[in-house]
Design a protein around this nucleic acid. Structure first.
Lengths: 212, 212, 212, 212
DNA sequence: AATGAATGAGAGTTCATTCAT
DNA sequence: CATGAATGAACTCTCATTCAT
């Protein structure tokens, strides 16, 4: 790696290097437990350099959130685009994908989740990137809504307010995963997360599926 | 307001006075955005006095959580105890009650939610009160499970793993509320939370209700 | 013990009660490690009561020093007053007594010793009791000087400046005891304190004894 | 004075700059009477900078002790290495040197002395530097022992346990200086310290010198 | 005389951010 | 561009002393 990132490519690399370090640390120690100096050291740069690429600590955090939402969007959009799949199967796949994301990219998930519950601290600086994240989240939900609409059009599902149902569906998934994080499900509740997901989907689909 | 709290009652009052100040501030500014000095000032006491009643900042926070869980438990236990009500109606009431709690005691809700997602920071100091809160949360869920069991016994619901279902049910509610917190539902999504709750319940109940 | 010490005797008792508690704590935890509240609790009184009997923390400390010097003075004065004993034997007894005091009243010794090395902190408040302590220390040394004079008069010792010699003698004893405190003599140096005392006395007496 | 110390040399200078400020303050106000902020201000840096060079307050203190022991060691080792000097003269020079150190580096002396008598407070944090100081103190005493051995070999002194005698000798010197510190010798006792040292040496040497 | 709740000025330490080099 | 030394406001928690009761 160059000490000085003169080319745009090299600059981008350094930026990602910093982000990678931040991701690991934010995940391990949380936002308040992570110091800029730690990120710099792990990224192999100096403290000042972090500020060369990111306005401040919160912006680093948001960049990670953005990345996370991006990854999840990408995963879901792929699943949804599979041709020759019923809407029901797609919806089921969406849930499974979200679950997979939670497992494979736990770091991102945790980072994305924090934002929602300490909004006053972190959200106050209404920056450019905040809007980007909001936009990406919105289009993610819109994709899911698309599947519902498809299902209704294909008469798989009963007719319902798709936007409401999307939010319910997504909220439910969120709730389950957070539940899993909160209490150590396997230990405390004695039920594993995948089981719960299945149960939840069954419960929902009974409500959505057209009974013929 | 007593200047010196000499009786146990007066001491209790002062303790609550401090807690009330803390509640408002934690809600407004978050845990890390609130300084002990602020709490003291708002409560009309000195910094030292806060430490006379609470061991440290985290204990103040936990006292609030405990209070919140207590209030919610009380609300739900009342609803559940209504005689001559179907299990379905009770479950629906539970959801509505949770929603009401979120509206009326938003401060508590936010405080209770933080704990779950930043466990590394705050949960490390495993104190007495932590166990109390965990216990209360557990018995809250157990109450809900009771309704499900009742429904199955009365043949309202299909036979299912009640503990799993309880967690799914509660997780879903949590998810929906968090969803609402995260994005300002009314503005961004254009759907209000109560609507979503209704939809969610309908969706779930189709899955639970015995079809005859 | 009366809650209210109305009689002078009862007052004196309470004062000593506090002092006893302070002694144990100052010894165990040092001046800065001891809080007034601790002393009060151990003495079975309230914080405020301590201030009823002593002007402040330092005065409590000084009262202990005074008591310590008093005890040591008493011990030495007794030894010195034994009739039919050579001056040399008396001097040797003085040393042995100081050593005994260090062993039996270690608490006092430590308290008395601290004063000398943190003079700026504690000595600044030139109070009544400071003068009393200084006076007692002075008369203690004067007693020792008396033995030396006696020895010269009896032609046991060579003629020397008794006041200088007294200070040298005492300083040497002090030095040895402090040495013992500082390094854990038995462990680090491999020599025990009594041995050192004997050696020191022998060394001194060779210098003092009249060679005939 | 550099604003930013970038070279190792400049850093070392800044470290010493802080230490110099600390020395003056610890001497004047004692350990507990000195605040980090004072040290920073006197050194012309900010509070944070102090912590850039020293882990905490105690480490600053220990660095001073180390420096003090170092200076004294150096002074004594020089005196001892003078060729063509009798062991007796060397021992006498050692005492005089210790006295000189006490006069010229009083600040160090006081700082070094505190450690020994409040071990519970300060010694608990057994750090790297503590061991270094202990080691230096030990080798200082070993140097003095060397002189005694030399004296015995050259038949100047009677044969005795050199390690015991070294400790007695040093303890005596310590005791005398502490005596001087405790009571303001010139004023209260009316004898100056140098006089006492001479007397002490004479007394000891009578005990050590081979009588021929 | 006695209490012990209340005070509030610290005190040490941290760390996001800046800026001289 | 990059560095990393320097900053200093923040922040939690302590504890000698006071004073209302």
């Amino acid at each position: 790696m160059n000490r000085r990132a003169r080319t745009p490519k090299a600059k981008q690399e350094k930026k990602e290097q910093i982000l990678a370090a931040a991701k690991a640390l934010f995940f391990e120690k949380g936002f308040y437990g992570t110091r800029i100096e730690m990120i710099a050291k792990k990224a192999g740069v100096s403290t000042g350099t972090v500020y060369l690429y990111y306005k401040n600590k919160i912006e680093v955090y948001k960049a990670l959130q953005d990345e996370g939402v991006g990854i999840l969007s990408e995963m879901i959009s792929q699943v949804i685009s599979w041709p020759g799949m019923s809407a029901l199967a797609k919806l089921s796949e969406v849930a499974r994908t979200y679950y997979r994301f939670h497992n494979e990219y736990r770091e991102y998930f945790d980072i994305m989740a924090i934002l929602c519950v300490t909004p006053k601290d972190l959200k106050e600086s209404e920056s450019e990137i905040s809007k980007i994240i909001d936009g990406k989240t919105f289009s993610l939900l819109k994709m899911v809504e698309g599947v519902l609409q498809e299902g209704i059009e294909k008469s798989e599902f009963i007719s319902l307010d798709t936007w409401k149902a999307t939010n319910v569906f997504w909220g439910m998934l969120d709730g389950l995963i957070l539940l899993a994080e909160r209490r150590n499900i396997e230990n405390v509740i004695g039920v594993d997360l995948e089981e719960l997901f299945k149960q939840a989907l069954e419960m929902s689909f009974y409500g959505i599926l057209k009974q013929n």
